[in-house]
Amino acid sequence: MPGRIWSSEENYSIIMESFQNPDITISEICRNHGIAVSMFYKWKDQFLEGGRKGLEGKDPDKALIKENEELKAIIGEMTIANIILKKIT
């Protein structure tokens, strides 16, 4: 049977609990929420990585938009070349 699916809000709440309650151990937090300690640290690492990227000023959405525009341009060029090749043959 697959494990429970946690929402991002629930992940955030559990991670923040560890910061807001320094007297409680990670093991206790995990036990209270029914998650494995390894899962908690995976979520925490993802959370901290996102924060680090935010502080660096990197906007992943802008990077994806730029990559998308570049790929569309390549597809456009290939489409034009394909049309020309079809007309030649």
Rank of each mutant, 00 (worst) to 15 (best):
K72T: 08
K53S: 14
D59W: 11
L85V: 02
A73P: 01
N11R: 14
G3F: 02
S7H: 06
K66S: 12
E49Y: 06
N11Q: 14
K87V: 06
M1T: 08
Q46H: 05
E10D: 10
Y41I: 05
A73Y: 12
T79I: 06
A36V: 04
I75K: 12
A73L: 14
K42M: 05
G51L: 15
S7Y: 03
K53L: 15
P22T: 04
I15V: 12
E28D: 13
Y12E: 12
R4Q: 07
E9F: 10
M78W: 05
L85D: 11
E67N: 09
V37R: 15
K86E: 07
P60K: 10
E17I: 05
E77N: 08
S18P: 05
T89L: 11
I83H: 00
S18E: 05
I35C: 00
L85W: 07
I74G: 00
K44R: 14
G3N: 11
N21M: 07
I88N: 02
I35F: 00
G3L: 05
C30P: 00
G76L: 07
A81R: 15
I88R: 15
N32Y: 02
F40H: 15
G76E: 14
L48E: 12
I74K: 08
Y41T: 09
G57R: 07
P22F: 00
N68F: 11
L48I: 12
Q20H: 05
E10K: 10
K86H: 03
M39Q: 14
S13R: 15
R52C: 08
G50C: 09
S18T: 15
